[in-house]
Nucleic acid binder design. Structure first.
Length: 789
DNA sequence: ACTCGTAGCCTTTTT
DNA sequence: GGCTACGAGT
């Protein structure tokens, strides 16, 4: 058995992992150690051993990873019924079956972050609970945190809450009640519901455990408690659980992932076999050395080695640029040069950065050179308005209780159902404990609303009922009819008269129709096309849309890059406050996660790697220009440092101008680093007036520039904010202060940072609370209060 | 009730 | 620099 041809070409540890079939297994796989290979080979090996394909489940993080494995597996063994998919996809399928047990209909809707936020917002309004210094987003993330930790509203209500969490404690149950009433789940619910279901129904747990005898989990370091519980419950009587992961690549702590799940595995499965894959087949020793030096700075870490197996290559480059624009231009130039030399294709390049916003400049530079690229992340197809509008109709057809879908569709295109009418419908729905759709029917039947509104609602219901009548036909027809009945194309055309997105929007609709007809082909009784489509629309991530066939540069965030590899990698903007991100620097755990993020980025590179930062980034004050402390942790001696900023130091002041990027616009053939800065509109105007000889002009420009920049307040915001921060740090909760017009009062809350720092003061004179931005009011401190440090 | 204009808001990472 | 939410006008 053990000499199966499958096992040829695997190293010892890989082979050990592939052939360990029964009993719990943990594969600690460093980057580039052939993990995906191990997983696919392992499945093939299991099939070869006669294990039934339907009893094997492989769970991945992204659809992309799942598809990749599916494709590899297909090449090895042909079509199989092995379930390879994402956690969420798998859980949705199970949840559909047992939905009633957690209070959901089988046709429950899945809400994306946008929809969920809309629900949360109305839950907040509903609970007549005033939000003070807590944003909806912050509430959402707290609720998400609870759900990931399987803390249901019921559990939470039994807990004593700190004042911080009091508001969440109020809103969370209301939010959840709304979701359930709409027959909907958010992303976190998908996991939470299934986990609680498995907990509460041992016989179901047992059945599923029996059915899914062999479970594999990829990117195990990124699982959260809910996911752990699910996996654990499905591997109880048949503990054939194989987890693969790398704690050094755990980068989703912020959304509840818990690296400790790795040690929990050891605790919960005493027989656990641990196999390490430490040989790296991907990167040159130079790249690995940089990665290793960096990651060793993480204190909360089990030491692990990266063993290079490739020959020595080029040194890792560290490039320093005066501005983000230079960075982008130079990267684009390098890519172009390497491709035209013939040594590489565009698809050999990956450009990685911390946040989506950083893609803009590099996009422009590539565009200007007509270098093809694909951008991952940013705006998702299914988040586009025109797509979401249409999908809303289908959602409502699928699930009539879906209030979010109704609110979205009832007045698109505008047919005269305004805010007022909706409010009354909502009130009716609340009173009669029914859906908005039912409220609409009641309103029309009993003429509860003004005639105008009633006829509008009637026409909406007519469209809706017509759509419902063909729900069992092909999905394309349903979608086509939706577009027709709503005159959607005409509506969009009218909307788009000014901005010329019309062709793009039309193309989007066509793509939507194309995807619908594709799904019609693969639809089955178990998964009707409409349901598949709606799930696909919401669970499809953007990384999944990455097309491997075409020759283009890939642009994406470091997070999205996990699991991928490129011959040449550029990591941009490795600056303090960006990587590590501002919001991570006070928390040592979060800081280590940021370091791991860079580690992931570095280890994506096979042959060449360039890390870079810019001294100025025209990003509303945020680009500090300070190189990331992570860069100090790299083996500088082995690296090649390219300091493109040196020659420009004299001009630093002008380069630091926020508007610099606006007027520095080198054409494709321009020098990357011109000796002078050209001029913006204002400067050119003054030049015309001056009529000085060229050398003098430059001087005049410079002195004018210096003057201008000195007088623009934004130029000093950095220092100013810092000074203000210090000055304002005395205004804390509990302080007694005096306001010019309202007199004295006590600070009851403070929020925000820098110039946005604001306080809420409860005034003694009238007992009312008012909020102020510290940058806008003059306050005198009367009494530092009890919380002085 | 809808459309247009502006001010304030926010800008991590994603299933 | 971009969007959304809100407010005034038609």
């Amino acid at each position: 058995m053990k000499d199966s041809p499958l096992l040829q070409g695997l190293n010892d540890s890989q082979r050990a992992a592939v052939t360990h079939i029964d009993g719990p297994l943990l594969v600690l796989a460093g980057p580039g150690s052939g993990k995906t290979r191990v997983i696919t080979y392992r499945i093939a090996y299991m099939l070869e051993q006669g294990i039934h394909p339907a009893s094997i489940v492989g769970l991945t993080f992204t659809n992309k990873a799942a598809q990749e494995m599916q494709a590899r597996l297909k090449r090895m063994v042909g079509e199989t019924s092995v379930w390879l998919g994402t956690f969420h996809g798998f859980c949705v399928r199970l949840l559909r079956k047992y939905a009633r047990l957690v209070g959901l209909p089988e046709n429950f809707s899945i809400y994306d972050a946008d929809d969920a936020q809309a629900v949360l917002k109305s839950a907040v309004q509903d609970s007549q609970f005033e939000l003070t210094h807590v944003s909806i987003a912050a509430l959402a993330s707290r609720i998400s945190y609870f759900k990931n930790r399987l803390i249901t509203p019921e559990i939470l209500q039994g807990e004593a809450l700190s004042s911080d969490e009091f508001q969440v404690g109020q809103v969370y149950p209301a939010y959840q009640a709304r979701l359930l009433r709409s027959g909907a789940v958010d992303f976190d619910d998908i996991l939470m519901h299934l986990a609680t279901l498995l907990r509460s129904y041992p016989e179901i747990r047992q059945q599923l455990d029996e059915r899914f005898r062999y479970i594999m989990v990829d990117e195990y370091q990124d699982t959260n408690l809910a996911q752990y519980v699910i996996v654990r419950h499905l591997s109880d009587a048949h503990p054939n659980l194989a987890a693969t992961g790398d704690p050094d690549q755990s980068i989703y702590g912020w959304r509840g992932a818990n690296v400790k799940n790795v040690s929990h595995l050891e605790r919960d499965y005493p027989d656990l076999e641990v196999i390490r894959l430490e040989d790296n087949y991907r990167s040159t020793p130079e790249i690995l050395s940089a990665a290793d030096c960096l990651i060793q700075n993480n204190a909360f870490r089990k030491p692990k080695v990266l063993v290079p197996s490739r020959d020595s290559g080029l040194p890792v480059r560290l490039a320093i640029y005066p501005t983000a624009r230079h960075e982008a231009e130079d990267v684009a130039t390098q890519i172009q040069a390497l491709v035209s030399e013939g040594s590489f294709e565009y698809s050999d390049f990956g450009v990685l950065y911390r946040t989506n916003a950083h893609s803009r400049q590099i996009e422009q530079s590539l565009l200007r050179r007509q270098i093809p690229y694909q951008l991952i992340g940013g705006f998702r197809f299914y988040l586009r308005k025109e797509i979401k509008d249409l999908v809303a109709y289908l959602l409502l057809v699928h699930n009539p209780d879906d209030d979010v879908a109704l609110q979205r569709s009832i007045n698109t295109p505008p047919r005269g159902v305004g805010k007022k009418s909706l409010e009354q419908l909502a009130a009716y729905a609340k009173k009669h404990r029914t859906s908005l759709l039912e409220a609409c029917r009641a309103a029309v039947a009993n003429e509860l609303l003004p005639k105008r509104a009633c006829t509008a609602i009637k026409s909406f219901l007519k469209v809706y009922d017509q759509l419902c009548s063909i729900v069992h036909g092909p999905l394309v027809d349903l979608l086509q009819l939706t577009i027709e009945l709503t005159s959607y194309r005409e509506h969009l055309a009218k909307l788009d008269e000014k901005n010329d997105r019309a062709t793009e929007v039309a193309a989007n609709l066509d793509e939507l129709l194309a995807e619908a007809s594709e799904l019609d082909l693969v639809a089955s009784d178990a998964q009707p096309a409409l349901e598949a489509f709606l799930e696909f629309a919401v669970l499809q991530s953007d990384t999944d849309r990455l097309k491997s066939g075409q020759d283009s540069v890939t642009l994406m965030t470091l997070h999205a890059a996990k699991g991928l590899e490129f011959s040449n990698v550029f990591v941009l903007a490795i600056e303090e406050n960006i990587l590590p991100h501002v919001r991570s620097k006070d928390d040592p755990q979060a800081l280590e996660e940021e370091r791991r993020l860079l580690f992931v980025g570095i280890t994506r590179a096979k042959d060449q790697l360039q890390l870079s930062y810019a001294k100025s980034r025209g990003f509303s004050g945020q680009g500090s220009g300070v190189p990331s402390s992570f860069l100090m942790e790299l083996p500088r001696a082995e690296m090649q440092v390219l300091d493109h900023a040196q020659q420009l130091d004299l001009l630093d002041d002008s380069y630091a101008s926020e508007d610099f990027d606006e007027y520095f616009d080198p054409g494709p053939d321009d020098d990357l680093f011109p000796s002078d800065t050209g001029g913006d509109g204002e400067l050119e105007y003054s030049l015309d007036e001056c009529q000085l000889p060229p050398e003098e002009m430059t001087k005049a420009v410079r002195s004018r520039l210096a003057k201008a920049t000195a007088s623009v307040p934004t130029m000093r915001t950095g220092a100013q904010i810092e000074a203000n921060e210090r000055k304002w740090s005395v205004f804390k909760s509990g302080c007694v202060v005096t306001h010019q017009t309202f007199g004295s009062g006590e600070i009851v809350a403070a929020s925000g940072h820098g110039n946005k720092k604001s306080v809420t003061i409860k005034f003694f004179s009238d007992g009312l609370s008012r909020s102020f931005r510290l940058s806008h009011v003059q306050l005198t401190l009367e009494n530092p209060g009890r919380t002085s440090d």
